[in-house]
Nucleic acid binder design. Structure first.
Length: 305
DNA sequence: GGTAGACCTGATAA
DNA sequence: GTTATCAGGTCTA
């Protein structure tokens, strides 16, 4: 595989501000791969990206070339995480531990339709299997990008792309019950029966969220993932099993035995947002990682200081 | 408004 | 080897 080494450009963003590996492997995106030389390869929409992490920054290339705006937006580089960290520790002293563990973890900004497909696949599932499905989906429906330094790279899929595959084929590829949702979504999109998913970004969140939740396979959690990971709604808190455990153990033990009804879901999200503030969605990713890796819940339990 | 079961599958634990 | 549980949930009755 020829590499774009002669065209690599430098971005002086230290790993303390952007931990590339952590950000790309934290269950937000599922299709980035690392080559033997430690370079990360992936697609952002229909742009190919090549990223080499280093201590004081990273080397990068895109195809088509020099699309810094794409890299910058994808990693949400306009967000100053250091100031978030200061705020978070003021809001919740024990967040210091999570910041130490996951410093440089960022919310990535993905194309909305692709994020929608990925998180429909995420229900009752684990990250390795989700990665397998999201990879299969791209191979089955998304178009191949002519990136000279990567033999096989697919664009991020769109909803109309989904119509290229039958539910049967998705089931055969191991998507399980999610196959029906994706196939339905493709048919709806091709018939013009889905809203303009990109355009929803400009609506108020409650309206956009309701429109997303009207789609097959999309409930509150998946809609919130699109809000946070695609629309840049920094305050939206997707409540999955891990975040639920975290918020219950940390702040709402009274909800420990309650099942996750829409009310309880909203209460947990509101609790966390009330404490962590306008970037609660970003903070959510740290809580998610902590709960998922099992390190923090016990030590964080009890007390509020 | 809340609950129970069904829905696919693969990895890991018991 | 078999069974149970767990994964970034959603839908229907």
């Amino acid at each position: 595989m020829p590499e774009p080494s002669h065209r690599l450009r430098w971005a002086p963003i230290p790993a303390t501000s952007l931990n590339i590996e952590l950000s790309l492997t934290s269950g937000q995106v599922f299709r980035w791969t690392r080559n033997a030389g430690g370079a990360w390869l992936g697609a952002v929409g229909d742009i190919g990206a090549y990223i080499v992490p280093a201590e004081r920054g990273f080397w990068w290339a895109t195809y088509p070339p020099d699309r810094w705006n794409v890299v910058e937006a994808f990693f949400s580089l306009q967000v100053d995480v250091e100031s978030l960290y200061r705020e978070w520790v003021r809001s919740d002293r024990r967040f210091a531990e999570l910041i130490d563990l996951f410093r440089g973890l960022r919310i990535l900004r993905q194309p909305p339709e692709s994020a929608l497909c990925s998180f429909i696949c995420s229900s009752c599932n684990n990250v390795p299997r989700i990665s397998g499905m999201v990879g299969s989906l791209a191979r089955l429906v998304a178009r191949q990008l002519a990136v000279p330094w990567f033999e096989e790279l697919r664009a991020d899929p769109t909803l109309v792309d989904l119509a290229r595959v039958q539910e049967r084929a998705l089931r055969d590829a191991g998507f399980g019950y999610r196959a029906r949702y994706l196939a339905q979504l493709g048919r709806l999109a091709c018939s013009g029966l889905t809203p303009d998913i990109e355009g929803l970004e400009r609506f108020g969140w409650s309206e956009a969220r309701a429109a997303l939740m009207a789609l097959p396979g999309v409930g509150a959690k998946v809609a919130d993932c699109v809000g946070l990971f695609a629309y840049g709604r920094h305050d939206v808190v997707p409540v999955d099993t891990h975040v639920r455990r975290y918020v219950v153990a940390r702040f709402r033990p009274d909800l420990a035995t309650r099942s996750l009804t829409p009310r309880v879901y909203d209460a947990l999200a509101a609790e966390f947002r009330g404490i962590m503030g306008p970037y609660a969605g970003w903070a959510q990713q740290y809580a998610y990682m902590a709960a998922r890796s099992g390190v923090a819940i016990a030590s964080l339990q009890g007390g509020t200081g």
